[in-house]
Write a protein that binds this DNA or RNA. Structure first.
Lengths: 164, 164
DNA sequence: CATCAGATTAAAATAATTCTAAACTTGACA
DNA sequence: TGTCAAGTTTAGAATTATTTTAATCTGATG
């Protein structure tokens, strides 16, 4: 239970409606948390960033692509262009709010789980699931080339239906 | 020294010329090795597959993209279309002659080193280098989801200039 | 050496992502 | 509160890596 996600109880799924947007936010919790998060990251809390942040961080750990988040936004009646979704994902990533996962050399996934962990990748379906950091041990890393520093170690366990 | 690559001594860089192609191949070594390799994989030894195989396997361990191999072919005066390079790389991969590496979600790399090993990835330059399998230890893999089998475990150590 | 499945190719098509330039918003300040 | 610069959003065009298409070749076999 070390996650930092925000999971309020009785708030409209996507909160922000086209008409009313400086919504009062009941006791002022979920909105201001996201707001602080954006401010803290030096990102102006715009309507679309707020909405995307809510979609991203309100639902537990998620692995998604730009297209997925865009679709999510559509279903939640949040109007954002795909370009903005791409921009926002990258900004959030640079700001340390999201992690980029490379498992498929054709699409880019982002992970809302920023803790130290690795991934299962289901080749068939293209789905991802987390492996807690403490369940994989990468021992004995070789000496890093001169003048270089490790920026990250990624472990991807590729799985497929046991069978053939 | 457990590699299986073929490194002949005094043969013209790419061997195959547009005009003469059923070349005698001196004592019949490098050609027939590649030939056997293709035949063994159930791939018809065509002019372009032979040439690409030579480029791929004659030069030690290599990490390359389709575009790179295509460029290689051009400089070696081997005429192959880019589409054929793509096809060939995938066929070789399916045939177990090449390994696909996912480190960059924008291009696909292939590795001629089929032994068990992992990679350093230089974020800045997009270059790759091998880490011998025995220099990384992935211990304590978590239980694989039901009905699934591990098809591969990839470890990528991302590095960048030590500094700022 | 005729045949044909399999291979190659140029060119068009696709998919994911980025860029562009114009049209907004936002926050700051007078 | 009105104004404005700087930062954002957006539709659509552009780019990049890769795949598909359809036509044309080529290697293996009889």
């Amino acid at each position: 239970m070390t996650r930092t996600s925000i999971t309020p109880s009785g708030i409209t799924p996507s909160g922000i409606t086209p008409s009313d947007d400086a919504a009062p936010a009941a006791e002022g919790r979920p909105f201001s948390q996201i707001l602080d998060r954006l401010r803290g990251a030096g990102l102006r809390p715009t309507r679309q960033r707020m909405a995307l942040a809510k979609l991203l961080f309100d639902g537990g750990d998620r692995h998604l692509t730009a297209e997925m988040l865009h679709a999510d936004a559509q279903s939640a009646n949040v109007r954002v262009s795909l370009a903005t979704v791409y921009n926002t994902l990258h900004q959030f990533h640079r700001a340390g709010l999201l992690r980029e996962i490379v498992v498929d050399s054709q699409r880019t996934y982002f992970d809302t789980n920023m803790s130290d962990h690795h991934h299962f990748y289901f080749d068939e379906t293209g789905e991802l699931s987390d492996i807690p950091g403490d369940q994989v041990e990468v021992a004995a890393l070789p000496p890093v080339p001169d003048g270089m520093a490790v920026s990250r170690v990624d472990v991807v366990v590729r799985v497929r239906p046991a069978d053939a």
